[in-house]
């Protein structure tokens, strides 16, 4: 999550951070999670899984906000999120 300007109470703002769990070999590579992740956290891996599909991976440096949309949309029960704690929201430079 990003703010367009720095809020005055930034110190008190907390964002839930999620840890993305990907069951690589259960994935059928539909790409729903990649397409609809609001934070653009995921991409499809270049590597194949056992079934020959490209499963998603987390893009380095990207933070999951635990909306669980990928988990709900995934038709193959192969991605889910657990809570990793909270973080400080990012303030965008521009």
């Amino acid at each position: 999550m990003k703010f367009w300007r720095k809020p005055l109470d930034l110190d008190e703002q907390k964002v839930v951070r999620g840890e993305v769990h990907i069951l690589r070999d259960r994935c059928k590579g539909c790409g729903f999670c990649v397409e609809y992740c609001p934070e653009g956290v995921l991409k499809l891996d270049h590597a194949y899984n056992k079934k020959g599909y490209h499963p998603p991976v987390v893009i380095e440096g990207k933070e999951c906000v635990m909306c669980r949309l990928c988990e709900l949309l995934c038709p193959d029960f192969s991605i889910f999120i657990t809570e990793r704690g909270t973080g400080v929201p990012e303030v965008r430079d521009d």
Binding site: L23, R24, G29, K43, L44, H46, A47, H54, V57
Partner: peptide
């Protein structure tokens, strides 16, 4: 249209007991 796989393989995911 499909979501294109990343052309470069990502580093192996950190070992995790799924």
């Amino acid at each position: 249209s499909v979501v294109k796989a990343d052309p470069v393989a990502s580093p192996a995911p950190p070992p995790r007991d799924e």
